[in-house]
Design a protein around this nucleic acid. Structure first.
Length: 811
DNA sequence: AGCACGCCGACT
DNA sequence: GTCGGCGTGCTC
């Protein structure tokens, strides 16, 4: 069959294909009529899948039998054309198939698939009609077995029979596209019809419905069909006949499901800005609407009024005719900013986050595409919002590790915000009280502008911070107590004076790390400066970056002491201990486990706000964004827990967390107090957090990173290996490691392979191979070659290989 | 991913 | 001799 003349369509399908595919336009459609971003139904193998039209092309790849696209799925594109270069860049950078990138970017559930239906041919009908098998009888009339039933039959004994019939030509399989599950929600309105002058007799039910309509204000006002059926449940039929008689007209109108339940609480709108806020806006506003890439760091201490700066910047962008994207690290935090934006901008805001139903998300997406909403607010995936003229992208708490997606395609929302800003010539405003080392470095190097907010809005003083050395706390039965005498006394005092307390455990760590009871140091790798993990079974302390190990029975490399001790602790244990110590107190816990139940989570927050909770125990979750004016004491149980994570960002995270959690104390009238318990009071991240000296921390950390070649002075790609068979994973990882070593150049260092810090998750064994180098390009090249060379071996032993570009965490 | 093709053990 | 297991490789 001769191919129709070009141009052809370049299409990305949602399958793990490295290249895009080329199709001929659907029958009767010219390529020029299609709009990039439009969804098409295309044949792929012998099924039909959704494809995204990216643009026309005049060339058909060699040796390819061109197929026709089947149909256009919707008249308007799913995303603006401006996003296509963004998607292409991402696919390339994160080594992820383009179609899958697009699939991830779009709201779930809009991808159409196809499944086979059995169609009976006329010979088949003739042959089978006299004596059909029982299961066929219901379908003989229509000669079609719908896909759902077909699927069932193919899984049964009937399968063989069906295949024989197919060979005889009695049946054929026809692939039918399934309608995507998520569709616009519409409601039916009853509106006045054009009067054609004819009158027809009415049935009693029709009379009744007309009377109800009149009562509801018809025909002056349109009436919702649902209202009518609410009064008279059988109105549907009558309405249909009334429409046929030309007395009314029914209209389907699009409605948007509203994700913001209820009205926002009344929020303060400051009449006047602080001088620092004004100064910040003097810098930021001119960068917006200029249609040029302009990254700005907004470095403001907790409580300094960053939100108001965001709101004014967004308002300015709207005035300039631009659209705005606001990213927040996670939903728990989104709620706060969400209220502020909805309060200020109303329906112009579309909320996109994972806590919403697929239908709601889809609606919000459509409101943005159609220009009805002009501000997209949500977690990291909101960076893909379908806006054609973005003038401002705000990234709140830009340092937050939650911006990194840790499964599937591992992108970083903050980095993509910067990329999108540069591709679409927008201002990108990165806000944080504790900016990441990389961002601060960029600002210091003049790669982005920087503005600072150094004073709290209500000019509360920063709280008094005390550090308690856990090494000097007497042990109870050989183990250190959870609460030092000082923290215990402070908690007791706070309870007596009816103030609230926060107890915080930075538990990114896990039980299997080793601390020296003499000097407080955690065993670390001399090559990578990350902590060693205790592997009791193998009898080793192991580095999860480079594979360095020490024997189980080792002396502390720092002080030669034998007093090495495994440590581990969790919020649950702390809660139990608190309940034992203060049986009369109201104690609540907030962490990933308890927050899984949203109702319970909100109830705890509410009780906290109303002052009913005496002590709140939690993980990082409680450090973020919450404003608890009643809290006067913050206790950090084990500040160095996070330092024990085998991760080059451990010190940075610890510092950020301590500063953030410290900011929770004393936001009301009473002065705040913070007690930091730690085995390592001399560690710079703890000392400098105590002093609130982020400049000193930045400089110290930067010097360290420079020496070790970690970001921002170098780049990382982590090659991960996963599989059910521990031996196979190890073998594949080691084979890949040998290849990488062989190919390593002066510009790439190969660390490992080594078992991943949490070597087994959900029955999957995991190893990793870390590539480190000054530039990303050679890392990419090496990673690709190693993947390519190892692919066959990995596939045959069922080991999955994944790339994590710019890893945020090594867990 | 999904699906067909293809090449070896246990059944009528 | 067939049925059916899942390794291998491709999809415009």
């Amino acid at each position: 069959m001769a191919s129709p003349p070009g141009p052809y369509l370049e299409v990305a399908v949602a399958a793990p294909l490295v290249h895009t595919l080329t199709y001929a336009p659907p029958p009767g459609v010219r390529a020029e009529e299609l709009v990039p971003g439009q969804r098409l139904l295309v044949p792929l193998g012998n099924r039909l899948v959704t494809g995204f039209f990216l643009g026309t092309t005049s060339r058909v790849p060699e040796g390819v039998a061109l197929k026709e696209a089947r149909e256009i799925l919707d008249p308007a594109p799913s995303f603006p054309e401006t996003l296509i270069p963004f998607f292409r860049w991402i696919a390339d950078y994160y080594h992820h198939p383009l179609g899958e990138v697009i699939k991830t970017a779009l709201p779930k559930g809009i991808l159409a698939k196809s499944s086979p239906a059995i169609i009976l041919s006329s010979e088949g009908k003739k042959a089978l009609e006299p004596d059909p098998p029982e299961w066929l009888a219901p379908w003989l009339g229509t000669c079609r077995i719908p896909p759902q039933e077909t699927k069932k039959l193919l899984g049964q004994a009937a399968r063989r029979t069906i295949e024989q019939w197919k060979e005889r030509g009695w049946i054929v399989f026809r692939h039918e596209a399934e309608r995507p599950k998520i569709r616009p929600k519409t409601m039916t309105w009853i509106v006045q019809a054009q009067d054609d002058g004819k009158t027809q007799p009415l049935k009693p039910s029709e009379e009744k419905v007309l009377a109800i309509l009149q009562e509801l204000g018809f025909p002056e006002q349109p009436v919702l069909q649902r209202e009518v059926t609410g009064i008279y449940p059988y109105a549907g039929r009558a309405l249909k006949s009334l429409e046929l008689k030309g007395l009314i007209r029914r209209e389907e109108r699009r409605v948007f499901r509203d994700p913001v339940a209820g009205d926002p609480p009344p929020l303060e709108r400051p009449a006047r800005l602080t001088p620092e806020q004004e100064e910040a806006l003097r810098v930021i506003l001119p960068e917006i609407g200029k249609r040029r890439f302009s990254p700005v760091l907004l470095h403001g201490v907790t409580g300094s009024g960053k939100t108001e700066v965001y709101l004014r910047a967004a308002a300015h962008a709207l005035d300039q005719g631009c659209q705005v994207i606001v990213l927040v690290p996670e939903i728990a935090l989104a709620a706060q900013l969400e209220w502020h934006f909805v309060d200020r901008f109303g329906d112009l805001v579309a909320i996109l986050h994972s806590g919403m139903s697929a239908g709601e998300r889809f609606d919000q997406w459509c409101r943005l595409s159609q220009g009805e909403a002009r501000i997209a607010l949500g977690a990291r995936s909101a960076v893909f919002a379908p806006l054609a003229d973005v003038g401002l992208i705000i990234v709140d708490e830009e340092h937050d590790p939650a911006y990194k997606q840790e499964d599937g395609f591992r992108y970083n929302g903050r980095d993509l915000a910067l990329l999108r800003g540069s591709l679409e010539h927008a201002c990108v405003l990165l806000g944080s009280a504790t900016p990441s080392v990389t961002t601060r470095y960029r600002a210091a190097q003049g790669m982005m502008k920087q503005v600072r907010l150094t004073t709290r809005v209500a000019s509360q003083p920063l709280p008094r911070v005390t550090v308690v050395d856990l090494k000097k706390v007497p042990t109870v039965s050989g183990k250190p107590p959870i609460f030092s005498p000082m923290l215990f006394a402070a908690l007791k005092e706070n309870l007596n004076s009816n103030h609230q307390s926060l107890i915080f455990l930075n538990r990114r760590g896990f039980a299997s790390l080793v601390i020296c009871r003499e000097c407080g140091k955690v065993l670390t790798c001399p090559n990578c400066q990350v902590s060693l993990t205790l592997h009791r079974r193998e009898g080793l302390h192991l580095c999860h970056y480079c594979g360095f190990s020490l024997p189980l029975a080792t002396l502390c490399p720092n002080c030669r002491s034998t007093a090495l001790q495994g440590v581990g602790m969790g919020t649950e244990r702390i809660e139990a201990e608190l309940k034992r110590l203060f049986p009369q107190a109201m104690i609540k816990r907030l962490d990933r486990d308890t927050a899984a139940n949203r109702a319970e989570y909100l109830a705890t927050l509410k009780a906290m706000h109303q002052g009913e909770v005496d002590i709140l125990v939690g993980t990082q979750m409680i450090t973020k964004g919450h404003h608890f004016p009643g809290v006067t004491l913050v206790g950090i149980v084990w500040a160095d827990a996070g330092l024990a994570v085998p991760d080059f960002k451990a010190a940075e995270r610890t510092f950020q967390l301590l500063v953030q959690v410290t900011g929770r104390a004393g936001r009301g009238e009473a002065e705040g107090r913070v007690i930091i318990q730690t085995h390592q009071p001399e560690h710079y991240s703890i000392q400098l957090a105590q002093l609130h000296d982020d400049q000193a921390f930045f400089e110290k950390e930067l010097a360290l990173r420079k020496r070790l070649g970690f970001p921002p002075f170098g780049r990382l790609i982590n090659v991960r290996f996963e599989g059910k068979d521990a031996e196979a994973v190890k073998e594949v990882a080691q084979a890949a490691g040998r290849r990488a070593q062989r190919e390593a150049t002066s510009s790439v260092a190969v660390l490992g392979p080594s078992p991943a810090p949490l070597a087994r998750i959900r029955q999957q064994y995991r190893w990793q191979l870390l590539l480190k180098g000054k530039e990303i390009a050679p890392l990419h090249a090496l990673a690709c070659r190693v993947l390519e060379q190892t692919r066959a071996q990995a596939a045959s032993s069922k080991v999955k290989m994944l790339l994590d570009v710019d890893p945020e965490s090594m867990l």
